[in-house]
Design a protein around this nucleic acid. Sequence first.
DNA 1: ATAATATGGTGAT
DNA 2: TCACCCTATTATC
Length: 263
Amino acid sequence: MPEGHTIHRLARDQAKDLVGHQLGASSPQGRFAEGAALLDRSTLEATEAHGKHLVHRYDNGQILYVHLGLIGKFRRRKLDTELIGAIRLRLEGPERAWELVGPMRCELIDEDELDTILSKLGPDPLGPKPDVDEFARRLQRRRIPIAAALLDQSVVSGIGNVYRSEICFLCGIDPRRPAKELSDTEMEELWASTVEQLEIGVRLNRIVTVSRDEVDKPLSRLNRTERLYAYKRGGMECRRCGDEIKSDEVGARKVWWCPTCQS
DNA sequence: ATAATATGGTGAT
DNA sequence: TCACCCTATTATC
């Protein structure tokens, strides 16, 4: 679930349900009991997404910081449904509740701590001012493989393991090529593709990189391998050229690519 | 019933 | 590079 598109979509959806309202906050599971008590009955003023980082600002000055990590989820529920699972934080608005489960981080922080976190992030393709030049500058400094650089949140924020394979495929770039050796044009194409794909991700609330004319079903009815070109398709045929999708470890995680379409 | 897996990240070795 | 954290779901015995 959680790459940058998920977090930006959450910020948007939670704003709609919760901003401007005095919330009920609790920690049914108990591990965030003190924090929840400090948020309870305060009014949410704004939500923000920065790459994979989610922020809530409350009218009592509290700043809630959430990072979902690999397995965290923020789920939208109707108000009087049964509580299921290890709910770290439950926020109740007038019509809906949001339940946070399994986050890597969920804490109240101050403005300085938030600045420290945000200062480590590269440009956000979904941010208010997407900065292709800054992206290119940061790529030029890295001799690591491009697929490793795309995962590095200080190079670009919001890309995860699915998007890095998909974006390299869409741009026809071998994920193992050193980042700094890409041409200006290739860097610009990577950025444009990243912005485009993450925006689609926000709109559909899921990662779908295949283009409409390459599938016969509505995008919403595709299963995971059908929605993607490369990620976890090792051994399968490339849907563009029929060659066999390969995979390898790059930057401590697996990446998939088509040896013919990407060079 | 137990293990493996997951779209992430950190801190120790 | 490895161990570890967080939880739910799926796979394997």
